[in-house]
């Protein structure tokens, strides 16, 4: 399942940090990313590989450089599947409460 890969990839602080770094500045090289992490280059490469597998990071070759881009599409799928419906129930409750307290009847 795609979701499993997404959650697994997110289940690590270094990988979340890498996503944060790309969110701040999209399209970074491995070298740039390593500059923000106190970690061996090889480990960063491994983490990026897992993020790429989970389709959370996509790599674009530009000349001799490999640029890493944050791909939020799987996060959107997770949001749609796992967050929005709970959010809507909660908001519906709040809306009912507000209607009740304000004595509105038009809903």
């Amino acid at each position: 399942m795609d979701d499993d890969k997404t959650f697994k990839a997110l289940g690590d602080p270094t990988r979340r940090k890498l996503l944060d770094l790309l969110c701040e500045k999209n399209g970074q090289t491995l070298g740039e990313l390593c500059g923000h992490l106190d970690m061996r280059r090889q480990s960063v490469t491994q983490h990026l590989g897992l993020l790429e597998d989970a389709n959370l990071v996509s790599v674009v070759r530009r000349g001799r450089e490999r640029l890493h881009f944050l791909n939020p599409v799987p996060l959107q799928m997770v949001y749609e599947r796992w967050i929005r419906k709970f959010e809507q129930q909660r908001l519906a409750l709040l809306h009912e409460l507000k209607t009740e307290l304000e004595g509105e009847t038009d809903d």
């Binding site: 795609d2 999209n26 399209g27 389709n55 996509s58 674009v60 881009f69 791909n71 939020p72 599409v73 799987p74």
Partner: peptide, 10 residues
Amino acid sequence: KTTFVYVTFI
């Protein structure tokens, strides 16, 4: 200028 890359498998 900035670039965004979005990938999805369908």
